[in-house]
């Protein structure tokens, strides 16, 4: 009965509600998950800042930013795949393969940076489509399919490079610009992360494509019955992942000066998945966002940098990462009210 709104009053009422809704949606847009991430980030920065005065300096912030760019790119696309209800643990190997390809194509094309990068992106997209096709039409569980990819793409990268760093790109201004350049005081690498993240954020949040992605991960049966072509979306999501992983690989090349088959990209899948989970992605799919993932990337980067600055053994960082991933998922499941019944999903 209380829902009976009179026709003429409706539009006026809606308009007056808009500012209030804006404020409310701003708050809910930040969300509880993100607030705790911001809190965690503040704690980490305060802790290491008090231990070392240089930690909070602008130059160290840029160091952290550059260090997390490659992880950040992979985490952003991992977020898309996870929201679709999938997972891609081959992102690190894809980045390594793209890194080698970019340097080798660059060299054999007579130091043509655009050709090198184009080849890398082409290979990345192809690898992504291949992942998607295997998962969708081979009916292989995404974890298994991309676990196979993790090994196989690394192997391909090692085969074409003989397991060694390839080429030298720092004689080329484009690669130097990507790896060391700055725009408006900020490293180019960070700009690239910001642009990719913004584009994916807009895609997820404001387009019908994004809605359909959330729908697929939230309830694939319902999505199918609503006429969404799930297969197409899944292949596209993995293709996007391959493409962005290739960009990450190119940055790796630009950063280190040569194509790296494994060093620099190994273990990135763990960081990317940890960031996505910590950022609030439900591993079942249908939930998550770029904002949370980026905050988690920043948190992980700040932690890693702080530990390094303090001279703590690298091995501990692996322990800390593994612990964080498990903790993030445990907290998520608790919040969902999961009971210890049946097989964990």
């Amino acid at each position: 009965m209380s829902t009976a709104t009179t026709e003429p009053g409706t539009s006026a009422k809606n308009q007056s509600r808009v500012p209030a809704r804006r404020a409310g949606s701003l708050l809910s847009a930040v969300g509880g998950q993100n607030l705790s991430l911001i809190g965690g980030l503040a704690v980490v920065m305060a802790l290491f800042g008090s231990l070392n005065a240089n930690y909070l300096s602008w130059s160290n912030m840029q160091v952290i930013g550059e260090a997390v760019t490659i992880t950040g790119l992979l985490a952003v696309v991992q977020t898309v795949v996870i929201i679709c209800g999938g997972l891609d643990i081959s992102v690190g190997s894809q980045a390594g393969l793209a890194s080698v390809v970019s340097a080798m194509a660059f060299t054999s094309a007579g130091s043509n940076a655009l050709l090198g990068m184009g080849a890398a992106i082409g290979v990345g997209a192809l690898v992504g489509v291949f992942n998607g096709l295997i998962i969708v039409y081979g009916r292989v569980n995404p974890t298994i399919a991309t676990l196979a990819g993790l090994a196989a793409y690394k192997g391909v990268a090692q085969l074409v490079s003989n397991g060694r760093a390839q080429g030298y790109v720092l004689n080329d201004s484009v690669f130097v610009f990507l790896g060391r350049g700055k725009i408006a005081g900020l490293p180019v690498m960070i700009w690239i992360l910001v642009l990719v993240a913004l584009a994916v954020h807009l895609l997820l949040k404001y387009t019908d494509i994004g809605r359909n992605i959330y729908a697929i991960g939230g309830n694939d049966t319902a999505a199918r019955l609503a006429g969404i072509n799930i297969n197409k979306y899944l292949v596209a999501a993995y293709a996007l992942t391959g493409t962005v992983a290739a960009i990450a690989g190119i940055l790796l090349t630009a950063r280190t000066g040569s194509g790296q088959p494994t060093s620099g990209s190994e273990g990135l899948e763990l960081k990317a998945i940890t960031a996505a989970a910590l950022g609030g992605c439900a591993l079942k799919g249908g939930k998550g966002g770029i904002g949370g993932t980026l905050l988690a990337v920043a948190l992980l980067g700040a932690l890693e940098n702080g530990l390094t600055v303090q001279g703590i053994n690298d091995f501990w960082q692996n322990v800390a990462q593994g612990a964080l991933l498990v903790a993030a998922v445990v907290i998520q499941q608790r919040r969902n009210g999961e009971r210890a019944v049946g097989l964990p999903a």
Partner: peptide
């Protein structure tokens, strides 16, 4: 199981 996206809003589910 077959129609609704339980964690999404009425708006999302309708549109």
């Amino acid at each position: 199981a077959q129609a609704l996206f339980l964690h999404r809003t009425i708006r999302d589910n309708t549109s």
